[in-house]
């Protein structure tokens, strides 16, 4: 469970560097590729914390599925136009955004400094996870016993999202649909 400081520093700084690239790159597709690498650095840190399942799911779901769709949409919309040009923005906007970022940074620092005050630790220890046969088993057992209802509700929510997206996409061109069939 101990995280090697050398690897942590390496992957954390890589993650920060790629996260900066996401914001600073003018081209949306290039930003999206950088975001994939950020997710990859996170997965590496999860893996070093012995959370192999979480690492695999992070890569599988975020890097492998969601970001592919992201890039897909960006390329289909041909959004090669930079979405936001900082150079021409209003002075007040610049000062305002700077101040908001500083406040947010301060909040994060405060939150991480006072991390002990955020509730008690969970009951799963390294030994306990080992006794049920590993991460995958421990998480699955929890997910399909104590957290079954939230888990199922989340999947229903996602389904509702999909149905809603299809409904909106269908409604936007009623004329086409009417004459088509």
């Amino acid at each position: 469970m101990d995280l090697n400081p050398i690897f942590f520093t390496a992957f954390a700084s890589l993650a920060i560097a790629f996260a900066l690239l996401v914001v600073l790159k003018k081209n949306p597709v290039a930003s999206a590729f950088s975001l994939v690498l950020v997710f990859f650095c996170f997965a590496a840190m999860y893996a070093m914390l012995d959370a192999h399942l979480l690492a695999a799911l992070q890569v599988l779901v975020y890097a492998g599925a969601i970001m592919v769709l992201f890039i897909f949409v960006i390329m289909l919309l041909a959004a090669d136009v930079p979405s936001f040009d900082l150079g021409r923005s209003h002075v007040g906007l610049r000062i305002g955004s700077g101040a908001v970022s500083l406040v947010l940074l301060g909040l994060f620092v405060w939150a991480f400094r006072h991390t002990e005050s955020f509730g008690a630790k969970g009951t799963l220890t390294a030994a306990k996870i080992e006794s049920v046969g590993g991460n995958t088993q421990a998480i699955s057992q929890l997910m399909f016993s104590d957290y079954l209802l939230p888990f199922e509700l989340t999947s229903v929510l996602l389904l509702a999202g999909i149905v809603g997206a299809v409904a909106i996409a269908k409604r936007q061109n009623p004329r086409k649909e009417g004459s088509g069939s």
Binding site: V29, F33, H52, A56, V59, V68, T136
Partner: peptide, 25 residues
């Protein structure tokens, strides 16, 4: 010999598509 063997394969294999997307773009 990973405990999540099969999931690892699916996770890494799903990254292969980036090469193709990147090449095309």
């Amino acid at each position: 010999n990973l405990n999540v063997g099969l999931l690892y394969i699916f996770a890494i294999a799903s990254l292969g598509v980036y090469g193709i997307i990147m090449a095309g773009w």
